[in-house]
Design a binder for these strands. Sequence first.
DNA 1: ACAGTTTCCCGTAAATGC
DNA 2: TGCATTTACGGGAAACTG
Lengths: 440, 440
Amino acid sequence: LSLFTQLLANALVVEKQPIMLSLPQRPLILKTGVCFSVRVRFLANLPEFKCLLKVKPVFDKDVEEVKTVKWFRHFDFNRDECKVLDVDSPNGDLVTEFGYMCLKEIKGRTKGSIECRLAVTEELHIIKFVTQFRHVGLELNIEASTLPVVVISATTQVSSAWASIMWNNMLSTGDSRNLQLFVDPPPLTWEQLSQVLSWQFLCTGKRELDENQLSVLRDKIVDDPDDLVHWSKFSKNKNAWLWIDGILDLIKKHLVDLWRDGSIMGFISRERTAELLKEKRTGTFLLRFSESKTNGAISFSWVDNSNGAPFVHSIYPYTKDELEKTSLPDYINTYSLRGRKSRHTNPLLYLYPDIPKDTAFGHYFTNTAEKVLSGDGYVHRKRGDFSDNPTPPPSPPREPNTDMDMEMDEETKLESHEVIQELFADSSIFPEHYGSWTSY
Amino acid sequence: LSLFTQLLANALVVEKQPIMLSLPQRPLILKTGVCFSVRVRFLANLPEFKCLLKVKPVFDKDVEEVKTVKWFRHFDFNRDECKVLDVDSPNGDLVTEFGYMCLKEIKGRTKGSIECRLAVTEELHIIKFVTQFRHVGLELNIEASTLPVVVISATTQVSSAWASIMWNNMLSTGDSRNLQLFVDPPPLTWEQLSQVLSWQFLCTGKRELDENQLSVLRDKIVDDPDDLVHWSKFSKNKNAWLWIDGILDLIKKHLVDLWRDGSIMGFISRERTAELLKEKRTGTFLLRFSESKTNGAISFSWVDNSNGAPFVHSIYPYTKDELEKTSLPDYINTYSLRGRKSRHTNPLLYLYPDIPKDTAFGHYFTNTAEKVLSGDGYVHRKRGDFSDNPTPPPSPPREPNTDMDMEMDEETKLESHEVIQELFADSSIFPEHYGSWTSY
DNA sequence: ACAGTTTCCCGTAAATGC
DNA sequence: TGCATTTACGGGAAACTG
């Protein structure tokens, strides 16, 4: 009998499947007021109990930790109706689906002092599903529990919540579930963490992190001789994870193709960027993530040898909403430097180390083949960011053959009867000239 | 006594003041599930009744029309608590404020056939505030009513709802309130409507519509010999109001300054645009609203005489979200045509009739004075839309002095040792050439 | 005053109803 | 099926709250 009891107690299995939640790869984060759904299956094949087992969801049922740590928030379901296990056609299992589960906070938690309180994204909770099994005088309480979940109230908390989920997953061995994990969170080895980080990039961008990229991240995150990473270093504001997750989101929304292709070096310091590019010919460029913008931004850096010594420039980083309408390949394709007499030249020629731009990005360009006139008679426009030529003025004696500006100088004789206004390299530098031009 | 009753019955006055509603100029539209607030004041100065008069809000109380027209939706308040009139310090009036009123629909209306049913934004409702006045054996029911309101469930309905509010306001004379107005809506004269439309632009953009603009709108809206405008013509999908309101929203969000300055001709047909511009010198341009985009978009048109005959071009219109990050003046300032050898020229010189671009827009430009390097070492970028030169190839014998292309031809000898890639006028036209360039 | 957290609500997308 | 209307909820900002 005792064995049978044990069997049944483990027989109820919970599958979590948040249909309504738009974060399918992040199923362990629940937002108050937003629907999620849970499928519950009875593992023992007992079809004769069809519609006899009533399952009830309970939030944080019997959770010792939550009772002890008084400042944990309390939640309940908006509509908690019980459901009856029914036979699922393909396998004949007893199954039910809670399709519209929704959490609300029950206010009035005991307020702990701020120091001893965890962040809400560090609170781990569970949902249990309980049912009562009755048969020939036997009466058993059966229950199943979800994995730990983090409950948030706004989407801005998703990133922190996911950090908790990852940390918890890496530390939980077998079925030991410590909902107070973050009261005193154990550190991870860089070995463990780097694998998980790489896995995030594989899931989001279909490509793992390479040695060099991991090495850059390691330098940012590990400051411990034993190769350990501490939770506070990894998770707290302004620290590693928020920055990395911003980049993951940037990749997910705008750079999946380029990341998968391996066209994005991404994690590389400014200094190293300059070192690499200075060895290469003019027009070689690479893509790297901004380290200052914490919400995901990407920049391109290129080298220019035309003034004798190599000079490396980096474009002001592109953020998510700038990539919303124009893709990074198109920005690369149409970027230009404005020189004398409004001649525009694109300084980006070879993706590091030496891949012609068109080979690397050609089939992502959308700007090239468009017609000048759209069907409705409007002149079509292309977006092209430009900068005034940032190459510093050559103070050492110039080498005429490699100096682009010199060549241009030779043709800079303005035609006095030109009727279309020229765009000057920098109108604020030549106010008089500019003014006399427009005043006709 | 009868007179006294009458007096008291009119003594309760309702002021509507939707603090929580983000449409301060549109107070007569209520959205389900969104808070609004109402101040109720007792006009008779009877401070001795302080805290004795309990006011209760009732939705569509005693509304004969709503009872008759069975398919009107029913609503109720989410939390309808009564409030007690208290003395307001400055005037000593009896006042109360319902600060968190919120509507929800009561489902289960009688379904009318689609033909006889009004759109939800044509349903007019009222909210009444009732109180019982008791004094020396006298017992009076006093009530006050709001103006008709339209109840919507999504912000996409605001535009249509506002059309109803305007139409109703223009037709309601005195205190006759016909909640069934749109069952058979009377027409308006163009005289009436044009005043209201002009007023909308004054409220939104600080400038009324001028004669020419009104005349264009009139041609679009009035198709009746008697100068009458019919509701269906004005309000129904794809018709006048939705288009105009999209433009009002465009002005509110991005063009208040330019509209107030009178720099936007706006309402002018394509044909008339061409007529006006063809009389002017090359580089004259004007701003007009797109007639095809129904969500508010603006285009600039310019004239080019450089090929002999004047030719008028119009840029593909800019929509609200394109103006989000870059303002129209900046688009105008940096727009360019790409000619041979990647020389860019800005075809926009004079705002019609002859105002130099800088005079009209100069102090709205943000792009000009920016430094090349931003503080953090990044190269700053400017946004500049461009088009490949849309001027048609001159088939009649050219006049050399006015042909810009000819001038450029003279300098189009490519230097074989140039290291920076040229942007060609249209790479898809010269695929071979382009390819050999990039492959080095 | 302030930082962490929640609420509010627009605007879009999806679901629903007729 | 298509259209009108409502619901869902991400995202940004304001409001809340210790």
